[in-house]
Design a protein around this nucleic acid. Structure first.
Lengths: 242, 242
DNA sequence: CGCCCTATTGACACACCTCAAGAGGTGTGG
DNA sequence: CCACACCTCTTGAGGTGTGTCAATAGGGCG
């Protein structure tokens, strides 16, 4: 009982409504029995920075729900080329594949906490519940829409536009998680940003400098501040004016 | 009655099991009443080549199910830059958004036939049926996985790799729809391919020529043939060997 | 047959990449 | 607490894959 409480406090239980919004949204409609069953299967893990959550090719045995921290999600090519498909924050699900093996790698980029459930059982519970299934549908459909945005960025944006779009959408998702005033923390490395945007680290670095000189952003250690909202927005939407 | 039959033959009814696999998969589990209700709302449309099905920004009033033809799905930037997010074939759904307005444009690229249903009613029926909802979930999740592949292509593949990957995956999806022997029809224009791969028409054209000179493919009017399967596959997966 | 649209090809330009050097920050072990 | 090692980031110089601009060829349709 006391052990359960300790676990709860740091994971999906007690504080679920605060951190683990995804869990709550999905599990809210399950029966008492179902929730108890889930709770029994739930496991909590902590990941240090750079620690793998799961790797491309691994058997997809568990589904994860981030409750704290940030993870990078990426695909690798045989020769080492990398595409970061996204960054996961508290409240995001990881490993929701239909395949038996992961097509993506997930890796913590700062100290991260996640609950996990056996994928098969998780799937079975969701699949048996209309409300949960609708919610899941919403989540995946939403992700697909942002994937389309990403395609536009990757295929048709310039480096400057990519960086502006990245900074704005990242700030948006963080939603005031930033410590000081209006500084958006950037826990990911230049390489992560480069691999997210289809650029090289050098281009990312140079473009940061260029945007800073133009007064659009201000780069500080571990973060950035949007100095010129209008211009940043213009770049991010590839509006030709200006 | 006879009119209904005529409509059926060309649409989602009588021949549904042949062409409109998506409809069948989704609607198979609905009740008699529900299917009858759907049938009453069903409308069938034909689209000439280059005709719009719906446009980015339009109210998303109806959901479409292609039963014949091919459509390009794309996003536009204010200055005309375009990203083709995909090509839709018979059996594919179009306009499955959660938003009130389309974020994508859909346009026929050859004579195309589609059934459509009011989006709200369609959604309501799917959302009330576990089996249909699961199937829908599968479809969207599958699409999300291919979107991740596309990100890798757009961000990290060379022009040559992009073209090889495109040809192979397109041939795969067509699945022997080709007329002659092993020739894969390419109903889309060079511009469509370019905007799909994040290239220009000139680069697409030059890369086709390059691949042809290298003996990898053979370009014929309106189509292509993979001449060197192994090499094409190698390029498409960005395997370094060779 | 002639118009128009699409595809190909060439010459050149440039955005971004590659290679390389150096600065700055951080953690660790003595 | 310092000093070294290591890692990330920045900046520079130069190269290249792909874009741009332009001319020509090919194909379909009225």
């Amino acid at each position: 009982m006391s052990l359960a409480e300790i676990v709860d406090i740091r994971g999906c239980g007690e504080r679920r409504s605060l951190r683990c919004g995804a869990c709550k949204g999905l599990f809210g409609s399950l029966s008492e029995d179902e929730r108890a069953a889930l709770e029994r299967m739930r496991r909590q893990s902590s990941f240090a920075s750079k620690e793998l959550v799961f790797a491309q090719g691994d058997a997809a045995s568990r589904v994860f729900s981030l409750s704290e921290g940030v993870a990078r999600i990426y695909k690798l090519l045989p020769d080492g080329r990398r595409q970061v498909t996204g960054f996961a924050l508290a409240g995001d699900f990881l490993g929701l594949t239909l395949m038996e093996h992961h097509a993506l790698t997930a890796e913590a980029i700062e100290p991260t906490v996640a609950c996990s459930f056996p994928r098969a059982a998780f799937r079975r519970l969701i699949d048996g519940n209309l409300v949960a299934l609708r919610r899941m549908n919403q989540l995946v459909t939403q992700e697909l829409a942002t994937a389309h945005e990403r395609m536009m960025m990757l295929g048709r944006y310039t480096a400057e536009e990519k960086m502006a779009a990245f900074l704005l959408t990242w700030r948006e998702r963080q939603g005031g998680r930033g410590e000081a005033a209006d500084i958006t923390p950037l826990p990911m490395s230049r390489r992560d940003i480069a691999d997210y945007l289809g650029l090289t680290i050098e281009t990312v670095s140079r473009t940061f400098t260029k945007l800073e000189r133009a007064g659009v952003v201000e780069i500080v250690a571990g973060g950035a501040r949007i100095a010129d909202e209008a211009r940043a927005h213009q770049l991010a939407t590839a509006s030709t004016t200006g």
